[in-house]
């Protein structure tokens, strides 16, 4: 039977260093295999101990279940303890992860795109090549546009003169062309 498929763990940013080396006069004496700390273990340690999230919050950030997160975290601590006690190097690499990518929007060709490679900065739109791009924060933007009902009418209560309602302009600020009274909204679908 094939093993259960691992969920891909989400890592916000790659670590700033590739690993750690022991130092001191005796550090070279025990040349052993370096400890391989996986990216997901680094991320678990960062979320839990550096950003002081609890396991539940941190697991939601990494898009894994809480028990999985606890397993990743405990394996990270075992590996770090091993490196500290036995004076081994730590290499941070590997793991089933993806780096979270940022979204951009191009105002020329009206497209959205992401940047999967963090170390390269995006300067131009990948589609039309224009530089009218900006960061797009999709989590804090309400993507669903408000429903625009263009069929509504503004009605004059005195002479019943009708005119098309213009979106964004309140009817009570509009005046009837004929008798100069404030208009009232009349919804067409009602």
């Amino acid at each position: 039977m094939s093993p259960r498929i691992k969920t891909i763990r989400k890592v916000i940013n790659p670590p700033i260093v590739k690993g750690f080396k022991p130092y001191g006069p005796d550090s070279g004496k025990f040349i052993k295999e370096p400890v391989n700390l996986l990216y997901e273990e680094y991320e678990a340690l960062r979320l839990c101990d550096y950003d002081t999230y609890n396991h539940l919050q941190a697991s939601q950030i990494m898009c894994v279940s809480r028990p999985t997160f606890t397993r990743i975290y405990s394996s990270a601590r075992i590996k770090i303890a091993l490196a500290f006690v036995e004076g081994r190097q730590i290499v941070i690499e590997g793991g089933k992860i993806y780096f979270d990518s940022d979204w951009y929007a191009c105002s020329k060709c009206n497209c959205f795109f992401n940047n999967p490679e963090k170390d390269k900065e995006i300067k131009a739109c990948p589609l039309c090549g224009s530089n009218k791009i900006q960061m797009y924060d999709y989590e804090f933007t309400d993507i669903t546009e408000p429903e625009i009902n263009d069929n509504d009418l503004c009605v004059c209560p005195r002479c019943a003169n009708k005119q098309m309602h213009e979106h964004g302009k309140p009817c009570k600020d509009q005046y009837c062309i004929k008798c100069n009274t404030r208009m009232v909204r009349k919804r067409n679908n009602q």
Binding site: I8, K10, C63, K96, I97, Y98, F99, D100, S101, C109, N110, C111, F112, F113, N114, N115, P116, E117, P126, L127
Partner: peptide
């Protein structure tokens, strides 16, 4: 998104 991010493939969304 997670799959394409791990494969380093860029997504472009064109709504037109």
């Amino acid at each position: 998104k997670s799959l394409l991010d791990s494969l380093k493939i860029q997504m472009i969304i064109l709504k037109e």
